Amino acid sequence: MNRTQLAHVLRSASRIANDRDVLVVGSQAILGSRDEDELPAEATASMEADIAFLDDVDRAKADEVEGGIGEFSAFHEQFGYYAEGVHVDTVTLPSGWAERLLRPELPDSEPAQAAFLEPHDLVASKLVAGRMKDLAFAGALVRAGLIDLDVLVERILALPDETQQSVIDRLIGWVESQRTP
């Protein structure tokens, strides 16, 4: 996905949910900090943007987005990319993530006023998810020099208290494996 496609998803999601405050929480949140031409191919390979709303207690807005422009929708069929409506609580994030949200100017996304996870928060959440595609995404950003491993360790250590120590240990082990001797 590129920024133009993401802006289209953001515009559409904002209109569907009647909420300007759109939050990008999945891998495409990296487009809030970098243009696609500055990113490795693995970082923009997904044709799905995970969209949440800060004010969506009952998940109704996420459901509306999912139904309107989600996978297998007419939107997806027409454009080849789509939104997955998610609730922010489905993503495990380090404490303080909301204060670090990025809010770049994206005029093409109006009426959405999009917020994006900060890259280290994003990578920490991807490592918690731990799927192969998440690890490939995180590894690509690290190899491209876009993630400071020491900051990433700080974010991992700031994951919610209910995160099991074995998960923390696994994530720290992954980070250490990324350090070049």
Results as ranks from 00 to 15, higher is better:
G68A: 11
E84K: 08
R100W: 06
L127A: 10
M132I: 12
I51R: 06
R34C: 04
A29K: 09
M47V: 08
S95T: 14
P107D: 02
L23C: 09
Q28C: 11
H120P: 14
E99P: 01
R11M: 15
Q78G: 03
L31H: 09
S46Y: 01
D35K: 07
V9M: 04
G68K: 04
L23N: 09
S33Q: 11
S14A: 15
L106V: 15
R59S: 14
P119R: 05
I51A: 06
E118G: 12
E48G: 01
L10T: 09
E77T: 13
V65I: 14
F75N: 06
A112N: 10
R3I: 07
H120A: 07
A83P: 13
G85E: 07
A45V: 02
E36T: 07
S27R: 00
A112W: 06
D19C: 10
L127E: 05
E48Q: 08
F72L: 12
V9P: 00
R103N: 11
A83I: 08
A98P: 01
D21R: 11
V24L: 06
T4C: 07
Q113C: 15
G26R: 01
A29V: 14
S125R: 10
K126L: 04
R3W: 00
L106F: 08
L31V: 04
A115D: 06
Q113N: 15
F53T: 01
V128N: 00
D37S: 11
D55Q: 11
P94L: 03
F75V: 12
A52P: 04
S12Q: 14
E77I: 12
P111T: 04
A45E: 02
E48A: 03
W97E: 02
T4Y: 06
V86S: 01
R11Q: 15
E84T: 10
T92G: 03
E71Y: 13
A60F: 04
A45C: 03
M132W: 11
F72H: 09
S33C: 13
V88T: 15
V24D: 02
L122W: 08
A13G: 10
A114M: 13
Q28W: 07
G130D: 01
L23S: 06
Q28Y: 06
V65P: 04
A62G: 07
